[in-house]
Amino acid sequence: MNSSQVQVKVLPPAEVRPEHFEVVDVELPEPGPGEVLVRNTWTSVDPGLRLRLRADAPEGYFAAFPVGQAMDGIFTVGVVEASQADAFPVGSTVWHSYGWRTHAIVAADEVAMNGIANLRVLDAERAPAQAYLGPLGAMGLTAYAGLHVIDALDARGTIWVSAAAGAVGSLVCQIARLTGLRVVASAGTDEKVAWLRDVVGVDAAFNWRERPLGESLGEVAPEGLDFYFDGVGGDHLEAALGAMNNGGRLALCGSISEYEGEPVGPRNLFLATSKNLTLRGYRGSAHLDLLEEMQDRLGGWLADGRLTYRESVYDGIRSAPVALADMMAGRTTGKTLVRI
C-alpha cells in the first residue's frame, strides 16, 4: 500500500509558501496487532501548524515538524480499510493524528496530541465526517474550553472575539451568543465582517484594518468589555486591555500576529493589575473532560440549525500547502480543510 504524504522541504523563513513542501510517496506495511489502516478523507489546516514550521517551536507546544519526514500530529478523519484492533472494525469512520497524507497506519492505544487525537470512532450519522475537524472536534473544544476557563459560558456582559471569522473564532462567537453574551467581533476583510454580522449573528462587527482598534472598540462596545477571546495577540491584546472593565477576563488562545513576524506588544500590561484582570492562557487539549459536553451542546445546536459553520475546502493532498499559505494570509474563512 502506497501513501502520498506532504513533507517539509525547507522551513519557511517568513511567509509560508507551497514551495516549502513536497509530496512524497511511501510504502506502508500491513497493520500489525492493535493497528488499523486508515484511508484519510479529510485533513485539517490550522494556524498552529505555523508554530511547528520553525526550528524554535514554543516550549510546551507540539514539536517542530522535521524536514524530510512525515508531518505527524495533524488532525484528520478517514475510514478504516484494514484492522487488527477489535474496537475499530473495517468501515468505521475515525479521527486520528496522521493527517496531510492519503493513508496511515494507526495504533489503537497510541496517545496522540495530549490525548485529544487518539484513534476514535465517530458517529457519522450525527454529522458529516469533516464536522469532527471543526465544530465537533478540536476546534469546537478549543472554542468551548476558552469560554469555560474564563467563566464566560452562560454569563452576561460583552465579549470581543478577535480573528472571529476563523474556525475557532466563529465558534466562540456563536457559543457566546447562544449562552447569553453580547458579542462584538473583528476580522480583516469587509466580506468576513458581513458574514459575521449577517450569518453568524454577532451583535456588532468591524474590520480591524480600517482604523485604530481603540476607536472601533469604543464604537461597538462603549460600555467596555467584560470578556475577550484572543486569537491574535500583539496590538489586539493591547487594545483589549485598554477596553476591559474592572475585573474582566481574557482567554489567550493564539497569537497569529507573531506567527510570521516579530512579536509586538502589549505595551500596557500594567492594566491587568490596575483593572484587576484575569488573563488565562490555555490549550483545548488540556480540557478533554469537556469533549462530550461540548459535542452534546454543539451537536444539538447544529441539528436544530442554531449553529452555523463555514468551510474553506481545498481538493487533493497536494493542495494542503496552498491551503495553509492562504489561511495564514487571511484568504480563507471558517474552517480550512483539505478533501483527500
Rank of each mutant, 00 (worst) to 15 (best):
L53A: 03
L53H: 10
L53D: 11
L53Q: 07
L53K: 09
R54I: 00
R54V: 00
R54K: 15
R54M: 13
R54Y: 04
R54C: 08
A55Y: 09
A55F: 01
A55W: 07
D56F: 08
D56P: 03
D56H: 04
A57S: 06
A57C: 10
A57E: 09
P58G: 05
P58S: 05
E59V: 08
E59I: 07
E59F: 07
E59M: 03
G60A: 06
G60T: 12
Y61A: 15
Y61T: 13
F62N: 12
F62K: 10
F62P: 09
F62S: 14
A63P: 15
A63N: 13
A63M: 04
A63R: 08
A63V: 12
A64F: 00
F65L: 02
F65E: 07
P66A: 07
V67W: 03
V67I: 01
V67H: 02
G68F: 04
G68W: 01
G68T: 03
Q69S: 14
A70I: 01
A70W: 07
A70M: 09
A70V: 13
M71L: 12
M71E: 12
M71S: 12
M71G: 13
D72M: 01
G73A: 02
G73Q: 06
G73I: 10
I74C: 11
I74R: 11
I74K: 11
F75N: 14
F75L: 13
F75C: 14
F75V: 11
F75Q: 14
T76F: 00
T76I: 01
T76H: 08
T76P: 06
T76A: 15
T76G: 10
V77P: 00
V77N: 10
G78Q: 11
G78K: 02
G78P: 05
G78H: 09
V79K: 15
V79S: 12
V79G: 06
V79W: 13
V79L: 12
V80M: 05
E81P: 06
A82T: 12
A82N: 03
A82G: 04
S83V: 00
S83N: 02
S83F: 04
S83W: 02
Q84W: 11
Q84E: 14
Q84N: 14
Q84R: 15
A85K: 09
A85L: 10
D86V: 02
D86K: 15
A87L: 14
A87T: 09
A87R: 05
A87V: 10
F88W: 03
F88P: 00
P89L: 04
P89E: 00
P89S: 02
P89K: 03
P89I: 03
P89A: 08
P89M: 01
V90Y: 02
V90K: 05
V90N: 02
V90E: 15
G91C: 08
G91K: 06
G91W: 08
S92P: 00
S92A: 05
S92R: 06
S92M: 06
S92F: 02
T93D: 06
T93H: 15
T93S: 08
T93N: 04
T93I: 07
T93M: 04
